[in-house]
Nucleic acid binder design. Structure first.
Lengths: 149, 149, 149, 149
DNA sequence: TTTT
DNA sequence: TTTT
């Protein structure tokens, strides 16, 4: 069991790349407000690195922008890489497999983007709308290596 | 492990009662949108019964109203009771221990209620504000029966 | 967002059926221990109804038995049905989309069942083994109605 | 909303320290098995850094050892610190607020440790026993800074 | 109607 | 390196 559930806002526009095998990867940082203020009465946030793969990566790149408020679920992944100084560096990020749109980060409505977010939350029938269509990158399931038993 | 995480809107104003021992209990129903439309292209929702105890019950009763958008975490509880027809009836509800305010259900600002939610989500600096102060009903911890080992 | 994460034991063998459309559904009840004893010092449990669909339903029916300890994640679903007495009855159950095997409910090893659970947890390299291969019933994704935007 | 739920095993004995203000902090690394094997058919795990505060830190230090199988819930926290080379380094760890014991990492029973875990999981009446008594470090709640509204 |  |  390895589950992460977050609610927050993109700190910048997502960045999509393609792996050498042609698979899309989108990355962004999510600002997640802490429940409690710190000693100085300041509201703080945690900035969590998010990774999205495959078809969802394309949706994320297309529909999310800096300031978008989303909820997501995924799993924690720890990996290491060689830094420029030759040292091994360890980072942990969240691989999202489900992203839900909560509200736009844009003041002006995102015309043509697939969402019509209005300013009145209670009239918006697209709050909590799901941005993503799939619960993971399924075609991976085709080869045996992915069968977990 | 018994965790539930929900994001949705109150279908009506919360109702607070006091137990005979003087403890506050607040109940409401939360509409949680499904990710996928049904065969008829209709958006559906699940309506989940939420229970909140103690100090948080008071906060919930005070700050939440029909239409409030909240995220919450808690645990699933199954209980049975004797129905009017003498039969045993089984119900399962979510006992919330953490509630976060996402957006108001009110068009007009909730003056004096502790939140100043405006109608424009992107200008609201109190999105994701926490409504609740405690992570469970702690004074229960005082007596031995609550120690889990 | 609608997430449930549970860790518990099957109270009986799972029951698989097939819908009229030929889709497998497996149901069982999961006993989830409460963290705290009640006033009488008694350990209690919640008994949660679990539903599994599709390919996973078949796996669950095949590999899980009364007493199996599993962790699962899924979503809460509330539905109503007509009871025998003609009344509308409301029930909420957990639709599991990911099930992980933690330990067998059998004293004797489950020879031939795909798991070789030994009695020494620390030597068992198949603890937490995933029983299920898919994260939902994906072929649903094929038709437009399931696209959430 | 910031929730993490993990099921895994301690990779080493937990380490407890005391802050200058006299508060206990315990740290350990949790090996969380991945659901799917990698391309080479190898089972992999993520190694997640866990932090526990206050009274729970003491319990964790006392009852958990290398190999203990636990489930936990908590929140993701990202922080930065100055590395030896003067550079800012970013790390994210899980602050656990609820830990449940699933099985011991010890072959021999942990006599006197509060758990009597035997080597046969199905006979152990303390599976899923809760190690921790509190759901966070509550006395923090006493001062105003912690009130989230 | 409940598991270990 | 951070969002509202």
């Amino acid at each position: 069991m390895n589950k992460v559930i977050l609610l927050g806002r993109l700190t910048r526009d997502p960045e999509m790349k393609n792996t050498t095998t042609g698979k899309a990867v989108t990355r962004f940082s999510l600002a997640v407000d802490r429940r409690f203020k710190n000693k100085d009465g300041q509201k703080e946030a945690d900035f969590i690195n998010i990774v999205v793969w495959g078809k969802q990566a394309e949706f994320a790149a297309q529909y999310l922008t800096k300031g978008s408020q989303i909820s997501l679920s995924g799993r924690l992944e720890a990996r290491s890489y060689e830094a420029q100084d030759g040292q091994r560096r360890y980072i942990t990020e969240v691989v999202a497999d489900e992203i839900n749109f909560v509200s736009s980060g844009q003041k002006s409505s995102n015309a043509g983007a697939g969402f019509q977010q209005t300013s009145a939350p209670q009239s918006a029938n697209n709050n909590n709308m799901s941005v993503m269509g799939l619960d993971e990158d399924f075609h991976l399931m085709a080869d045996d290596d992915d069968i977990p038993f």
